[in-house]
Amino acid sequence: MAQESLKLWKDWRLHLVVLAIVIVAESIGTHSIPLGPGAILLLPMLYAVIIGLALYFTPLVSDKQSINAEPLVFLSVAVLIAKFGVQAGPAIPQIIEAGPALLLQEFGNLGTIFLALPLAVFLGLKRESIGMTHSIGREANLALITDKYGLSSPEGRGVMAMYIFGTVFGSIFIGLISGFLATVTPIHPLSFAMATGVGSGSMAAASLGPLIAAYPDMSAELTAFSGVSNLISSVSGLYMSIFVGLPLTVKMYEILSRKRDLKAAGGAEDVKKP
C-alpha cells in the first residue's frame, strides 16, 4: 500500500532508473523463440524485471530505491487494473455469457494442491509442504498461514519460502510458461486469460502479456476476461484459501504422508523378512 508520506515521488534516482529500464526494454522489443510445436515469447516486461533485478547489484540502486519501489509496484498495478476495468465494461455481454467458467475457474487455483502437494510429500517435505502448496503464496496467504500457525511453525516456514520464491521468480516463470502453454496445448487462449487472475498484479501482467502478443486479434477480449478473473480472485481468493484450499491441503497432506510412512514401514519389514 502507499504508506503515509514516504515521499515516494522524491526518489528521482529510482524513477530515472525505471525510465531507463523501460526505454531499453521497449527498444529491444518482443522476440519469439520457437520451442517444439510452440514458442516462448520474450516481452519487454520480462527484460524489465531481469534488468531491474540486476541493477540492484550495481551502485545505481541502493536499498532505499528497492524499498521505495515496492509501493510503486502497487500504484502502477492500480493503472493496470483500471485498464482491465475499461476493457471489461464493453465486453460485459460476453463476460456474463462466460460467467460460469469465470466463477468456477477460481477452483482451478486449487490445482496446486493436486500437482505440487504430492510432489512435496514425495520429495520428503513434512508440514512445510502445507504452507508451500496450499496456494500461490502471496501476501494474503502469508497472512492467513501466519495467523493460523505462526511464522516460525513448519507451515509458516513453508509459506515464507514460497512467498520469496514467488516474489523473485514468479512473474519471470509465469511469463515464460503462459505463452508457451497457450501455443503448445489445445487449451483456448480465452481459458488461459481466465487463468491469469492468480492473485498477484505483476504475475497477472506477466502471464497476460504473452497471450496478447501471441493472439493480438483477441487482445481486447483476453484483457477483459483476465481483468474479471483478477477481480474475482482479489475479492474471493482469501476466502477460497480459508474455506477450501487450506483445509483440503491439510486433509490431503495427512493422507499422503500416512501413505508415505506406511510405505516406508512396509518397505522396512520387507527388508527384514528374508
Binding site: V17, V18, A48, L53, I67, A69, L72, G209
Partner: peptide, 12 residues
C-alpha cells in the same frame, strides 16, 4: 506492464 515489472525488479 513494463514499468510495473521494472519497479518490481528493483524491489525484488
Amino acid at each position: 506492464a513494463t514499468p510495473i515489472l521494472a519497479y518490481a525488479g528493483v524491489s525484488i
